[in-house]
């Protein structure tokens, strides 16, 4: 692993104290940042809550957008200096508008957010077009810069960054990871089991499985599922994300920090998720709280670092569903009476 290779240089002493220094700097910086985050939070909280509503957002947003559009239309037929001034102001105000939108994402509905982003995109496009018309490119300082970059452009090896990133020295413990891959692939009609020792802290990959039962006892770092059909996959607590792609007619049970589900159909998920689950290009996905259990589950929860008391299994974001107010038709909650409560080994 690179990180290891980087510090396993000849001069261990220097490397160590370098690492310690970096650590110390990082800690200091983190402290300062936490403080400033807190200051900002306080400032925000004291702001009137009334501002945080859609009316305020949309009227401010639209007024500002119109102002920028006016600036842009003022460029046509104007002299170069005026156009340049208008464009400069429009650029700055567009960036501010983007910032305003970003700051408002907390209380905006997905649909309104998308709409505002689309409006901003249109604005950006007309900004670019107006600029190309009013100020032909050759005047840009940018050009000169690009040319300089062409000459000096070089792979990292030619312009070495600080010593810690020098190319790995020969003989260092370099794995390409291929032999390290943990999981199952290209199997059908089987019972597949991994023990705690096999999956602990590992990145586990399951691909091209058909009609299999998979049991992963233990706590992997991350879990990827791809091309899964008619399977029942039960897994212990995953400390970061579970990534699912092209899964059909299957049942999954897993605790994790994030669940990201893509191109998946007719699949039931018994989920414990401490942040959020998302679906994209999915239909017929249904959710219920995680209910699988095995003897060392508690210990594995501890290893994973997941908060066992925090389960957002029913808060699913559908990245394809724009309408505000109406729930996504692509996922449902499994009715209580239909939920699995017992699992065979």
């Amino acid at each position: 692993m690179d990180v290891m290779a980087d510090v396993s240089h000849e001069n261990t002493l220097a490397a160590d104290s370098g690492a310690a220094r970096v650590q110390e700097r990082m800690q200091k910086r983190n402290q300062a940042r936490i403080e400033s985050v807190e200051r900002r939070r306080e400032a925000k909280e004291s702001q009137s809550v009334a501002e945080e509503n859609y009316e305020f957002f949309s009227s401010t947003f639209n007024r500002e957008r119109e102002g920028i559009e006016e600036l842009l239309s003022g460029c046509s037929g104007a002299d170069r200096a005026t156009a340049a001034q208008n464009l400069e102001e429009a650029t700055v105000r567009t960036a501010q508008l983007q910032k305003f939108l970003s700051d408002s994402t907390l209380f905006l509905k997905q649909y309104d957010l998308r709409k505002a982003q689309a409006a901003l995109q249109t604005l950006q496009t007309s900004l670019t077009e107006t600029r190309e018309e009013a100020l032909p490119k050759k005047k840009f300082a940018f050009r000169a810069r690009t040319k300089g970059a062409d000459r000096a452009c070089a792979p990292a090896a030619d312009t070495p960054p600080p010593s810690a990133v020098s190319p790995a020295e020969p003989g260092s413990t370099q794995t390409d990871g291929a032999s390290e891959q943990c999981g199952f692939s290209n199997l059908s009609e089987q019972l597949l089991i991994k023990t705690s020792e096999e999956v602990q802290k590992r990145d586990v990959l399951l691909t091209h499985l058909t009609n299999c039962k998979v049991r992963l006892f233990g706590s992997p770092s991350t879990l990827h599922l791809k091309h899964i059909q008619g399977c029942e996959i039960l897994c212990g607590p995953v400390s970061s994300s579970v990534f699912v792609d092209r899964c059909t007619d299957s049942t999954l049970a897993v605790p994790c920090q994030q669940l990201r589900t893509h191109n998946t159909t007719d699949t039931r998920v018994y989920l414990h998720v401490t942040s959020r689950a998302i679906i994209e290009d999915c239909r017929g996905v249904s959710f219920a709280p995680f209910s699988w259990s095995y003897p060392t589950l508690e210990e594995d929860f501890a290893v994973s670092g997941l908060d066992q008391t925090r389960n957002n299994w029913s808060q699913v974001d559908d990245f394809n569903w724009l309408a505000a107010g109406t729930p996504s038709p692509n996922w449902t909650v499994i009715p209580e009476e239909e939920r699995r409560t017992s699992w065979d080994p």
Binding site: D176, G177, D203
Partner: peptide, 12 residues
């Protein structure tokens, strides 16, 4: 994600 055992090296 270089902390993962299955991670490819930066050269790869």
């Amino acid at each position: 994600k270089q902390d993962l055992p299955g991670a490819l090296s930066k050269e790869a």
